[in-house]
Nucleic acid binder design. Structure first.
Lengths: 154, 154
DNA sequence: AGTGAAAAACAATGGCG
DNA sequence: CGCCATTGTTTTTCACT
C-alpha cells in the first residue's frame, strides 16, 4: 500500500462527499489539475482505497420508514452455527449491516424495512425460527440525526 | 413524488450497487437505451430519490480499524439538552450515524476510529464531559459480516 | 414510452517544462 | 506536479416513432 499525502486525503474527502463532481471541479477545490486528479484517482481505485462508487438513495422516498437495530444471541457458539447465521443475514436484503460484538450480544444487525409490521415479520419469520438463533432484542430508531457515511480523514 | 415503475427500481438497484457503470451498460442490463437511462436518472436525481453519488472507501486502508456502537443516556430530556447533544454528534467526524432510540438508551451512535485508544478518547474527552450526557455504554464490533448499504428494493 | 444518431462534455494519455 | 493537446468514451439533446 502506497503512502498517502495530503492531496490524496483531500481527494478522498471530496469523492466520498460527492463522486459526481468532475475531475476539473475537484481539482479546483483541492488545488490540483484535472489530469493529476485523474491519475491519483486511478491509483486509489487500483489500490482499493476506493472500493466502488454508489448512488445514495433516500430510504423514505422508497417507502422504507423504519430503521432498527437488532441484537442477536446465538443458541450455541459452534462454528457451524456461526456460519449458518452468517448465511442467513447475507440472504436478507433488509439487513444493512451485521457485526459480531463484544459483550452480551453476539451480533448486532442494522435493518431497514417498510414499516413496523415488516420488522415484526423479519424478526418472527426469518430470525427467530432459525435454529442458530436463541433470542433477539430490537431497538427502533425514532429519528436519525446523522447518517452521512463519511469516514473521518485526518 | 412521481410513481416509480419496474425500470426505475431496476435502475436504482444498479446505481446503488455500482454508480460508475455507464448509462449504456446499465441500459443493456435492464433493457433500456442509454438515452432513457439518462432521462430517468435525471428525474430520480431531481426528485431526490437519488440523494448523491459517493465513493465508498475502505476504512482499513485508511487506518480506521475500530467500529463501535455507543448507547448514550442524556442527563435530562429537555429540548435544550437534546439540541446541544445533536450539535455535539454532528461536530464529531468519527460519528457515522446517530439515532434517537426507543427503549432505555436515548441515542445510539455508530463510530469509526483508528484504534481503541481513539475510541477511549472519544468517549472520555468528547462525550462524557459534555453536560448533556449522563452516561454511555459502548459495544465494539469484532468483525463486520455485512456492510453493503444496499437498500432493499422490492 | 421508447429508439437512434448527432452534438457537447468529459476522462484518460503522453510529452514537456 | 502543471500544462497542453489529443484521443476515445460517455452523456445529453433532438428528431422521430
Amino acid at each position: 500500500m502506497t503512502e498517502m499525502d495530503g492531496f490524496d486525503l483531500k481527494l478522498l474527502a471530496e469523492l466520498q462527499a460527492d463522486a459526481s463532481a468532475t475531475n476539473q471541479a475537484i481539482g479546483e477545490r483541492i488545488g490540483l489539475s484535472a489530469s493529476q486528479v485523474s491519475r491519483r484517482r486511478q491509483r486509489l481505485e487500483a489500490e482499493k482505497v476506493i472500493r466502488r462508487y454508489r448512488a445514495d438513495l433516500d430510504p423514505a422516498a422508497l417507502g422504507l420508514t423504519v430503521t432498527a437495530f437488532i441484537g442477536v444471541a446465538l443458541a450455541t457458539h459452534s462454528p457451524q452455527n456461526a456460519s449458518r447465521f452468517r448465511a442467513l443475514v447475507k440472504a436478507i436484503p433488509a439487513v444493512q449491516e451485521a457485526h459480531t460484538m463484544t459483550g452480551d450480544m453476539d451480533y448486532l444487525l442494522k435493518v431497514v424495512v417498510k414499516d413496523l409490521k415488516a420488522l415484526g415479520a423479519l424478526i418472527n419469520d426469518d430470525l427467530l425460527p432459525h435454529d442458530s438463533v436463541r433470542n433477539v432484542r430490537s431497538f427502533i430508531a425514532m429519528e436519525t440525526l446523522k447518517d452521512d457515511c463519511l469516514l473521518p480523514l485526518d
